[in-house]
Design a protein around this nucleic acid. Structure first.
Length: 586
RNA sequence: CGGGCAGUAGCGCAGGGGCUAGCGCACUUGGUUCGGGACCAAGGGGUCGGAGGUUCAAAUCCUCUCUGCCCGACCA
């Protein structure tokens, strides 16, 4: 490709609002352009990178037996009503009606569609196992898109779906994905870790997320440096210490202006761990068959030295959605905000008690009276509720596997894998006849990779002051040919030669100064730069620089450029191949 | 959905009742330069996000509205 004809142009200054380095550079290099909030066009350079990522994905999916198909973005709402997600998913899924008034949705994922296909195709155990995948546009009306391609509303996703006759088969396909995903990300050059995760709206039990660790990430990952335990904070557990002692009798105590645990413990001269903290949320419960909605107040109780993990609370309460309760909603349940506890609360509130509280005694808790707390509150005696782990893991807490201190860091989720089980085959009636003659639901798995987000993470990982430094397998071109000589014939000829040899060349044939050309080459970040200039040509050489190390200058012979260029490409490719991560799930 | 900020040339920004709306970069033409974002000269490009209002006069003040960004809620 000749630079003089490239559709996009480079920007000298970062557009305002480009808050992360990677996003800024993708914009400045002309890889992407924004159309609306969370809606981006991929320009030719960006699309070339995306196509390369997609090729890696296809190769690895094919390698584990995947068959590519393509499902429609627009679905009749019927199948979404069958699984209940038409009702349980809120505004994140966009809906409309066609001309005759039929309910339609923009599919935000394809479990419904693929299960519908499978129930027509799969009738016998002889047709299992199966694995299909697609690279398809998803629309999710995220309430808050941000950070360029990291969190968007329209995006391309690789999603695959496995079908098995039993759980052993599912586990096998799950493990195949576990390994394939590490291969995909590492082949693209992106370092990732797999963490245990919540299954969220997907349903199912076992799930992993692939995280690219980055300070701009929105997920918090809890890790144990000692034994390798990793989990999303949403599900991460830790070892709690309990404080058991003989129960003492309940005692009201005046605690003016003690609306926080900090103020309370200072006022009473006690440690936060001797208090119980209450969090009030309103949970929305949606009946999956009728779509009927009901709101109930949820009280989460955790010991004062910990925080509540809202995701855990939501799961335990089995709510479809949670939001903080308004003070008047709390009061309506006979609870006093700031001095609240389940003691004496209305009957219809859902009380969830962290095991740290249930197993500790004589904690200070709210008296549901402005300015007063109780000493010696005890679960089981003074109030009841569901006991579960709803505490949020954090830096320094004890690892659930080895007891050593945990650490936390931020990450971006680039992929995930779920063991769905029969969540969708049950509700959509996707069954097969097994060897024993019985009809059984197909066992499913679902596996996703955000393609654009992967590119965004790569841009985040690979850059320097001057621009992008993309690895060879995902760079839009392999070679950037910069011609600084007036006589364009030499450059044109070299360009032709390289192209004919199958090398992907970006050829800067513009009538620009050397500085402009180098600056653009730095910005675009094509891994290998060939510079055609008088300096080296006098010696019959072409100057070579690798984008990732501009200090070092190499050279190849002017009269035999193709073979030597190919050798450099091969060596860069080999560097990546040597780093391909092989990890298996035990 | 709450809180904050911002919409003026392709990009980054200035101007905040008064004549023809400006600067840098980018763009066009001519010339000089030619290995790290060159120089000189001459140009082109704007219904100042939209609607309504106040005023002799509105990019500027007021009201409404749309859009984008940031924080939070939210989020596979």
């Amino acid at each position: 490709m000749r630079m003089s004809q490239v559709f996009s142009r480079t920007l000298r200054e970062a557009p305002s609002g480009a808050d992360s380095k990677g996003y800024e550079l993708l914009l400045r290099a002309g890889f992407i352009q924004q159309l609306g909030a969370g809606i981006f066009s991929l320009l030719p350079l960006g699309l070339r990178s995306v196509r390369k990522i997609e090729r890696v994905i296809r190769e690895e999916m094919d390698a584990i037996g995947g068959q590519e198909l393509l499902m429609p973005v627009i679905n009749p709402a019927d199948i979404w009503k069958e699984t209940g997600r038409y009702y349980s998913i809120d505004k994140e899924m966009s809906r409309f009606q066609d001309r005759v008034g039929r309910d339609m949705v923009l599919a935000m994922t394809h479990e419904e569609c693929v299960t519908d296909i499978a129930r027509n195709e799969i009738d016998s155990y002889k047709r299992l196992p199966q694995l299909v995948y697609q690279l398809q546009t998803k629309w999710r009306d995220d309430p808050r898109p941000r950070a360029g391609l990291i969190r968007v509303r329209e995006f391309t996703m690789k999603d695959s779906y496995s079908f098995d006759r039993d759980y052993d088969g599912l586990v096998k396909q799950y493990k195949a994905h576990y390994r394939a995903y590490f291969r995909i990300f590492s082949r693209c050059g992106l370092p990732t870790i797999a963490v245990g995760s919540d299954s969220g709206m997907m349903g199912g039990k076992v799930a992993h997320e692939y995280m690219y660790l980055s300070p701009i990430g929105e997920d918090t990952i809890i890790m144990c440096p000692e034994c390798g335990y990793t989990a999303n904070r949403q599900v991460a557990t830790f070892v709690k210490t309990y404080y058991e002692e003989p129960m003492k009798s309940l005692e009201e105590v005046a605690t003016p202006d003690c609306k926080t645990i900090e103020a309370l413990s200072q006022f009473l001269h006690i440690e936060p761990r001797m208090t119980a903290k209450a969090l009030f949320m309103v949970g929305t419960f949606i009946d999956a068959t009728s779509g009927e909605e009901q709101n109930r107040l949820i009280v989460g109780i955790v010991r004062g030295d910990m925080d509540i993990e809202e995701n855990k609370l939501q799961n335990v309460a089995k709510a479809n959605a949670l939001r903080p309760a308004h003070p008047d909603e709390i009061k309506a349940a006979k609870i006093e905000p700031g001095y609240g506890s389940p003691i004496g609360a209305a009957k219809d509130v859902v009380v969830v008690v962290d095991d740290s509280v249930a197993a500790s005694n004589n904690l200070v808790g709210g008296a549901n009276k402005e300015g007063y707390h109780y000493r010696n509150t005890n679960y089981g005696r003074d109030y009841n509720g569901v006991v579960a782990d709803i505490a949020s893991a954090a830096d320094g807490y004890a690892c659930p596997q080895c007891g050593k201190p945990l650490s936390q860091s931020k990450g971006i989720e680039v992929g995930n894998i779920f063991q769905l089980g029969t969540r969708y085959s049950d509700s959509l009636g996707c069954t097969f006849q097994d060897e024993d003659g019985q009809r059984k639901p197909v066992i499913m798995g679902s596996y996703g990779i955000g393609v654009g987000r992967l590119l965004a993470c790569l841009a985040e990982e690979y850059n320097d002051e001057a621009g992008l430094v993309l690895p060879l397998p995902v760079a839009p071109y392999q070679v950037h040919l910069v011609s600084l000589v007036k006589d364009s014939d030499i450059g044109d000829q070299l360009y032709q030669e390289l192209c004919q040899a199958g090398i992907e060349v970006l050829y800067d044939d513009r009538k620009e100064s050397a500085g402009v050309k180098f600056a653009d080459a730095d910005l675009l970040g094509v891994p290998i730069r060939l510079t055609l200039g008088n300096r080296s040509m006098k010696e019959g050489k072409i100057e070579v620089k690798l984008r990732k190390n501009l200090q070092q200058t190499l050279s190849i012979d002017l009269n035999d450029p193709v073979v030597q260029t190919k050798a450099i490409i091969d060596s860069l490719q080999k560097e990546v191949d040597d780093e391909v991560v092989e990890k298996t799930l035990s």
